[in-house]
Computed example of a mutant assay.
Amino acid sequence: MKSVKRLFLVIFIIYLLPTFASAGLWAMKDRPSRWSEARWSSAGILPKAEQSEQAAIYVFSAMTGGLKGAVASHAWIVIKEKGAKAYTRYDKVGWGKPIRRNGYPADAYWYSNTPELVTSVTGAKAEQLIAKVEGAIATYPYAEPGGYTIWPGPNSNTFVAHILRTVPELDAVLPPHAVGRDYLPGDEVVHLDEDWRDLHVTLRGLIGFSAGMRSGLEVHFLGLVAGLDFAKPGIKVPAVGRIGI
């Protein structure tokens, strides 16, 4: 009985306490109450596409709107072919055509929230990877209408995490508040990245863990992620994000 109580105490301290704290801070923020009132224009993070001949791949994440914004973010991926005069953005959304192409500017605010650049690859390496990224987008298994569930997934973060696992050369992991990133397609329970640098184990995105050079050590509980980042020393806090160097 004592061990059960201790387990609940650990879950409360590690997962629920940060989530409640984040929700409280979110409730005090001045934020748009409706979609139509939010800002969706460019945040000015990326240079104009025509200013560089280089190929590029970018992954962004931004806190979402409404009550979900207290604990969850939305991720998307941006591609620019060598010599292209425009970026191409891909989002997975829950309305209309699920894989949205250029629905918003490449580095746009999301529900008025400033996006975080998760990773960027430019130049020759991006040229080599763009076809592989596009292949991962084309083969995403939940691309049809109805292939979206806010929690535990598959959602927008499941889509981008699928690309990052399929193209491990991008060498990135979505932030801890990207709820749905740990949902594996189909009936997959265990996934070892192609380069063997990350192992993912999950039961439908509800409980599991990730371990490796990219993920560090993570434990997942009901879509919330806690763990240690070894590549860039820091801690991963549920609903809050990564804290460290």
Rank of each mutant, 00 (worst) to 15 (best):
A84R: 00
Y109I: 08
A131E: 15
F209R: 04
R39C: 12
A131I: 04
S156Y: 10
I150V: 13
R6Y: 11
E116W: 09
L164F: 08
V189H: 09
T122G: 05
W110M: 02
G223E: 01
W40Y: 15
A211H: 00
D187Q: 13
G180R: 02
V240E: 00
K80P: 08
G83V: 12
S215G: 13
E116M: 10
L224C: 06
E50Y: 11
E50P: 00
R39D: 15
S120P: 03
F230N: 01
V219G: 04
V219T: 12
F159H: 03
Y90G: 01
A124M: 09
V189L: 14
V237A: 04
T114R: 11
G227A: 14
E37S: 15
W26Q: 11
I79V: 14
G186H: 09
I235A: 10
A231N: 13
G208N: 06
A108H: 13
R204F: 12
D229W: 03
V219H: 04
S52V: 03
L222N: 06
I14C: 08
A62P: 07
P185L: 07
P176C: 07
P141C: 14
G241A: 08
K85G: 10
S22A: 15
G216L: 08
E50F: 11
K132Q: 15
W40L: 15
F221K: 00
S156G: 11
E144H: 15
D193E: 15
W196D: 07
I45R: 08
G24N: 14
G147F: 07
G65Q: 07
I14K: 05
V237T: 01
A70W: 05
I163Y: 03
R6M: 07
E50K: 06
I45F: 01
G103D: 01
E134A: 06
A56G: 14
G244H: 11
R197I: 00
A108C: 14
M213I: 09
G241L: 06
L199G: 08
D187W: 09
I207E: 05
I79P: 01
P238K: 08
T64C: 11
L184Y: 05
R165W: 05
P18W: 06
S73Y: 10
A23N: 03
V93D: 11
W196Y: 09
G227Y: 04
V59Q: 05
